[in-house]
Amino acid sequence: MINKVVSGAEEAIKDISDGATIMLGGFGLCGIPENCIDALVKKNVKNLTCISNNAGVDDFGIGLMLKQRQVKKMISSYVGENAEFERQLLSGELEVDLIPQGTLATRCLAAGYGMPAIFTPAGVGTEVAEGKEIRNFDGKDYLLEYAFDADFAIVKAWKGDAAGNLVFRSTSRNFNPVMAMAGKITIAEVEELVAVGELDPDHIHTPGIYVHRIFQGKDYEKRIEQRTVRVKS
């Protein structure tokens, strides 16, 4: 067994430097790597290219990195919850590549599966298709989209072990497993680091081969963006 445990977020991100391309798991604020984001904010690395479905909110998640102007370019599918993001984008301070959500996920998948590109119908006939190769299969047009090439992938899991095996919980799984497969170096922060052998091999979502560094995170806030409830009748 190869031991991949590091002491914490600070050590896990120690070699992420200015200009790096990093993937960050999560959907909205659900399943985001809170500890590593905090460490990146403290380290104040700049000129980052961030691949993440969303851009956090103004005072949480990737929004904290945007506020410090650490992000040069954002590659996302939906950024509607962040006013500072929209301001930086409309003023031209921030470069943004908005891409369909399924394309984003599948470009991660392709990287993790060792495939250079995919064909998808999403975006055909729209501005997303501009400059891209189109192929027709059985009468339908598809866009050629390339696998992502990210220096680091940072994901959040529920449980993990020293071998790097990961188990996700509920819909906080989202982009985390596909990004975990896609980084040249993958960092996983977990709510609970368990002893090797404790996770049932049949229940592991991400095999440890994809994970290079792992640590047990702390003080998870797990902020809820849209708290929606029904009243007991």
Binding site: F27, S170, T171, S172, R173, P177, I224, Q226, T228, V231
Partner: peptide, 30 residues
């Protein structure tokens, strides 16, 4: 969910807290 039973790890695509049902399944974005 009923008030007090919200789970931050369980949301829909609109980021609202929701619940699962018997027979529900969960998977990754890809």
């Amino acid at each position: 969910p009923f008030e007090g039973e919200e789970d931050a790890d369980l949301i829909n695509a609109g980021k609202q807290t929701i619940t699962t049902l018997p027979g529900s399944s969960i998977f990754d974005s890809a």
